Simulated assay, not measured.
Amino acid sequence: MTYRFLEHIATADVAFEAYGTTREELFISCAEALLHTMVHQLEDVERVQEEIIKLEHTDLDLLLYSFLEELVFQKDARQLLLHADVVRIEEADDILRLEAVTSGEKIAPQRHRLVVDVKAVTLHHFQVVQEEDGWRATVVLDI
């Protein structure tokens, strides 16, 4: 799982491109990039609390959007910083169903070197593309 931050897409926001050989790996890479946008060191966020996220959508890109928005919501509403540990995506009757096992902990400013506060995932330049060797997503975060 890998990602890289993009400097040329948004000047007042944070943009990244993430990759995965499968759709599930792509979602995990995007979640990792989102968390890394908020916290300087990913390993500072301990996996002490598990949360299950279940979502469904007809479009893969909007499923990813909803997943990342849910992670931002968890941070805002419950003060939880979450790693995406396992993601499963199944398709039936033209509906994509996601179940993600996430883990993390409540924000502890004395231990977590916070970088920026992500307010939302935007649809600006948002895309999910299947390539020969896997999947790629471009995401812009409102900070």
Rank of each mutant, 00 (worst) to 15 (best):
Val101Lys: 07
Gln74Arg: 10
Asp117Val: 06
Gln49Lys: 05
Ser103Cys: 03
Lys75Cys: 04
Asp76Ala: 14
Asp61Ile: 09
Leu96Ser: 06
Glu51Ala: 00
Gly104Asp: 02
His57Ala: 12
Arg113Ser: 09
His57Cys: 08
Ile89Ser: 06
Glu91Met: 13
Ala84Trp: 01
His112Gln: 07
Ser66Asn: 12
Ala84Pro: 07
Ile95Arg: 15
Arg47Trp: 00
Ile107His: 04
Val101His: 09
Glu99Ile: 12
Leu60Tyr: 02
Ala77Pro: 04
Glu105Cys: 09
Asp94Leu: 12
Pro109Asp: 03
Ala108Lys: 14
Leu68Thr: 06
Lys106Arg: 11
Glu105Pro: 03
Gln49Trp: 00
Lys54Met: 03
Thr58Val: 13
Leu64Ile: 07
Val87Ala: 04
Leu98Asn: 12
Leu82Met: 03
His112Pro: 10
Gln74Asn: 05
Gln110Arg: 14
Pro109Gly: 04
Leu80Tyr: 03
Leu71Glu: 01
Asp93His: 13
Glu51Asp: 02
Val116Phe: 02
Lys75Glu: 07
Glu51Cys: 01
Tyr65Asp: 00
Asp94Glu: 14
Glu50Ile: 10
Ile52Asp: 05
Lys75Leu: 09
Glu70Leu: 01
Asp59Ser: 14
Arg47Glu: 03
Val87Trp: 07
Asp76Asn: 12
Val115Glu: 13
Val116Ser: 07
Phe67His: 08
Glu105Ser: 11
Ile107Val: 15
His57Leu: 01
Phe73Gln: 01
Leu68Ala: 04
Asp61Lys: 14
Leu80Thr: 04
Gly104Gln: 03
His83Asp: 06
Asp94Met: 13
Asp117Gly: 11
Tyr65Asn: 00
Gln79His: 13
Gln79Met: 13
Pro109Cys: 05
Lys54Tyr: 03
Leu82Ile: 05
Leu71Trp: 00
Ile89Leu: 09
Ser103Lys: 01
Glu56Gln: 15
Glu105Asn: 06
Leu114Val: 08
Val72Cys: 09
Gln49Ala: 03
Leu81Cys: 07
Arg47Gly: 00
Arg78His: 08
Leu114Ile: 13
Val116Lys: 03
Ala92Glu: 15
Ala77Met: 07
Ala84Gln: 08
Tyr65Val: 08
